[in-house]
Design a protein around this nucleic acid. Structure first.
Lengths: 179, 179
DNA sequence: ATAACTGTACCGGCTGGACGGTATAGATAC
DNA sequence: GTATCTATACCGTCCAGCCGGTACAGTTAT
């Protein structure tokens, strides 16, 4: 048996992290290989083009998101609070892959746009299962999106500049559910 | 009197529109000049570097945002509903400049990040003037950010995929105000 | 008045470097 | 004996920034 490929995962993670922390422009082939500690030849061995790298990243996002949806559906606090709570960038794989895909989408990558729309539709469906009123469900969804937007820009939830803790925001979700 | 520079405005608008519709990567000096119908040399005459172009764009954003805040503070419907209503990309100068700045921030431009944080703080302050509860105010703010996030990706508010109209969302804001 | 000069607005070609991708020769683990 | 890499050289393209030049409006000296 040939030895298992460990460079592939390292390359994907390096690409993802570069997208998140430095932006699409800085995520060059050379930079990805260097960050992963892999030679450029090694990169091209696993991913024949830069777009192949992007496609693999979107596949990983879809897999991580499917896993996350299972947890969301079974969360004791309910899907809505789970969604809002995990919308602040908490450092999970999902978070990083999601933000990376946003970077790609903003750079004009059509596949990334489609993948993100898929994800949003699935999330909204889970929230609707708990909150029947469509407008309220959408409002909760948008709160989560806003949090993602924020932490994808600043790197974290800037609690101090808002003066509102995540816990208090979850309280708002409760109030919305009860309205 | 020297003849007035008309290329400068055209260049800024071209840069902004390219950032919004094609992404940061596509907004090259050549592309900006071509879109504005100006030569490369003409561009460099008005903006000595690409970063100077970005700085000018952020200045224009701040100006447009200050103007928008005046309207927001005086809106008969109240600042909160005004904010949410105008968070869907409606094609104003503010919207375009804002989305352009988001693109820059996501590409790692520090000045853009600072400008956006400034804007958000000012918006939140206006919302707080109407909605005293900090958590509720933040929730409204995040709804608006989520909408911006959405329309900056997809280009418009995807009402059909959400199944919720903007009017219904404004209804949620009313309910939040009354809670 | 008009020639000479000045500053602003703009043109378009060029260069050096970075980037995506190719190619190839070999090393290492299983 | 092959899948998984390393190392390095190379090519064509694209891009940011630079530079010499043009056009023209207004100013100054004569």
């Amino acid at each position: 048996m040939p030895r298992p490929p460990k460079a592939r995962d390292a390359l994907l993670a390096a690409y993802r992290d570069l997208l998140v922390s430095e932006g699409e422009r800085a995520a060059t082939m050379d930079a990805v290989a260097a960050r992963a500690g892999v030679s450029k030849g090694g990169l091209l061995y696993h991913f024949k083009s830069k777009d192949a790298l992007a496609e693999a990243l979107l596949d990983a996002l879809r897999a991580a998101a499917a896993e996350d949806r299972r947890r969301m559906a079974e969360a004791p606090e309910g899907p809505s609070k789970y969604f809002v709570r995990t919308s602040v960038n908490s450092g999970t794989d999902m978070d990083a892959f999601f933000v990376a895909a946003v970077r790609l989408a903003q750079a004009g990558h059509e596949g990334a746009l489609a993948a993100l729309e898929e994800l949003d539709a699935a999330w909204l469906a889970l929230i609707r299962a708990e909150i029947e009123d469509p407008a309220l469900a959408t409002a909760v969804m948008l709160m989560g999106e806003g949090l993602y937007h924020y932490s994808s820009l600043a790197g974290a939830w800037p609690e101090k500049s808002f003066g509102t803790s995540l816990g208090e925001l979850l309280g708002v979700v409760d109030r919305l559910r009860g309205v």
